[in-house]
């Protein structure tokens, strides 16, 4: 097992520097540094099993492909009409006919398959995608997901998020635990318009890993970031967390 302290020194720096400049509207203090986006992605990547079909959303989830454990081979699915792909293309070597759902240029690998949008989403709704990792604005204690529409803006991009929310066999949310003003993003009920109902199975944040229990069973804290205990995580969360008897520090295999 790889020690978290080995990666956090490099991965957290940029995030903290940015965070220190943010204005905060309350006095909730962080007992320890928060994990960087790359570390969240590393923890999400630990969930992927050898041979799974994986769809990665825009943002932190896209980073997951850099941290897939050795010996795990995945089939990446993209709404851009692609099964299997290489890593992001080198700067200046992008091919406009080989992009991911975020419009980034990819490199080719042997064994790719191309298809149109109707088929790309038939695959998703049809239950052929094993797991998707998505960003979120809010997740509720029953696994409702809100990630496409900010009421203050009045217009939003739904993209493929609603299809993935209902279609992927497993939905993992990768996000910061709190908004820039420290508002909890894990809440008893979403106040933002929903992407899907009861669809989220696991939440990985910059301070915790939380399971959404089936049948409205609520949330269970299973892992914490270094220096964060259950009480400090609960105080930054807008829904009640049950604490796993096996609560452990986040590890990155």
């Amino acid at each position: 097992m790889r020690s978290l302290s080995a990666v956090k020194a490099t991965s957290i720096k940029g995030e903290r520097a940015e965070g220190d400049n943010r204005t905060r509207r309350d006095n909730m203090t962080d007992p320890a540094p928060r994990l960087g986006r790359e570390v969240i992605a590393m923890r999400v990547a630990r969930e992927f099993r050898d041979g799974e079909v994986v769809n990665l959303g825009i943002g932190i989830p896209t980073l997951c492909s850099d941290f897939v454990p050795p010996g795990v081979q995945l089939m990446y699915h993209s709404e851009s009409g692609l099964l299997n792909c290489g890593p992001l293309a080198d700067e200046g070597h992008g091919d406009v006919d080989l992009i991911n759902a975020g419009g980034q240029f990819l490199s080719p690998i042997p064994g790719m398959a191309y298809f149109d949008s109707a088929e790309a989403f038939a695959m998703i709704r049809g239950g052929h995608v094993d797991v998707t990792a998505l960003g979120a604005l809010q997740v509720s204690e029953t696994g409702d997901l809100a990630n496409w529409f900010l009421p203050a803006r009045g217009v939003g991009n739904v993209g493929g998020a609603m299809d993935l929310a209902v279609g992927a066999k497993r939905v993992i949310v990768a996000m910061e635990h709190n908004g820039r003003d420290k508002t909890p993003k894990i809440v008893s009920e979403c106040s933002f318009p929903l992407t899907g109902q009861g669809c989220v199975g696991l939440i990985v944040t910059d301070i915790a890993v939380i399971e959404v229990l089936p049948e409205g069973g609520g949330l269970r804290l299973i892992e914490h970031a270094p220096g964060w205990d259950a009480a400090s995580i609960q105080s930054h969360t807008g829904a009640k967390l049950a604490v796993s008897p096996d609560l452990a520090e986040i590890t990155l295999a």
Binding site: A118, A120, R125, G160, M162, D163, V166, G167, G196, Q197
Partner: peptide, 28 residues
Amino acid sequence: PQGTLAERMRAAGAGIAAFYTPTAAGTM
């Protein structure tokens, strides 16, 4: 939703008037 958009086109081209999809159920 992107998949519904594509499927609504597919349906139009295939002579299907409408279809039931789980996408967007319970959302605005």
